[in-house]
């Protein structure tokens, strides 16, 4: 029996938690999220190199919340999601029991936000080098080339909203896409509707995105939409000194200002 199963069983048995969010084997060798409520179910839990999904998004799902006090198996992205959600008053300190899977397979437990913050401070939270390269490649293009690039990508979008469902920060009860008075985002998945949706989502995630990549992973059409939000991470850090998901009491970069915020385009 793995350490993980032992630990989760103990937590469930002594009622520290009522349910645990972890990974199990799905069909066709795929890994999927699972919600463990008792010792029997705990036997399904697995932990290996393929367990990369950010599970934090489930913490706010109504059906999951109903299960009671939650424990979660977290990776770095999930820890950051938890911090970000805490700063948005969606999770309270001590409400979630967090088990972090170290690279060597050992587990670290976090029972409060302070310890998560301390841990994140010394952890690499940046985006992957492939993604960095991709952004650099796009940035090197002309505006028009970039337009064509995204036009082509967005053309593929079928507006299934899998990206939104996968994003831990897209927890709105009613996404703006569903608002119809006025209908800000055209319903149909044509070029305009798709562009509108993706620009809007990127703005909504600006300063909040914790670069977990779930949106792009979820996309059935392989649209690299994570780049839209990733690209904003470094300017937001450089200009405002803010990085999402590092502190539970952080102030959102766009909810504050400095009188001398620098820009070079306002005349």
């Amino acid at each position: 029996m793995s350490d993980l199963i032992k630990k989760v069983t103990a937590l469930l048995n002594d009622k520290t938690i009522n349910a645990f969010i972890g990974y199990e084997k799905g069909s066709a060798d795929r890994i999927r999220a699972t919600f463990i409520r008792n010792e029997d179910q705990a036997q399904k839990l697995i932990l290996n190199a393929s367990c990369t999904q950010n599970l934090a998004g489930y913490l706010l799902k109504h059906e999951v919340k109903k299960l009671g006090k939650l424990g979660i198996l977290a990776n770095v992205a999930a820890l950051r999601s938890i911090m970000q959600l805490a700063s948005e008053f969606q999770i309270k300190d001590g409400e979630v029991y967090v088990l972090f899977a170290n690279a060597d397979g050992s587990l670290t437990e976090f029972t409060d936000f302070k310890s998560i913050e301390a841990f994140l401070e010394t952890t690499d939270t940046g985006i992957k080098s492939e993604e960095q390269e991709m952004i650099a490649k796009l940035e090197a293009m002309t505006v028009n080339e970039r337009w064509l690039f995204w036009n082509k990508e967005f053309e593929k979008c079928i507006k299934c909203y899998a990206c939104r469902a996968a994003c831990p920060m897209c927890y709105c009860h009613r996404c703006t896409t569903d608002v119809n008075q006025p209908q800000w985002i055209p319903v149909a998945s044509h070029e305009l509707g798709n562009l509108d949706y993706h620009l809007m989502r990127a703005m909504h995630l600006a300063g909040r995105c914790v670069n977990c990549g779930e949106c792009a992973t979820a996309c059935p059409m392989d649209i690299p939409l994570n780049l839209l939000t990733y690209q904003l991470i470094s300017p937001i850090k450089a200009t405002f000194g803010a990085t999402a998901g590092m502190k539970a009491d952080a102030v959102y970069a766009l909810s504050t200002y400095k009188p001398d915020d620098k820009e070079n385009f306002i005349i």
Partner: peptide, 15 residues
Amino acid sequence: PVYSQCVGCFLCQSV
């Protein structure tokens, strides 16, 4: 059970 489109993120509060 929705009560409002507001999700209580309070990102608006400090602006």
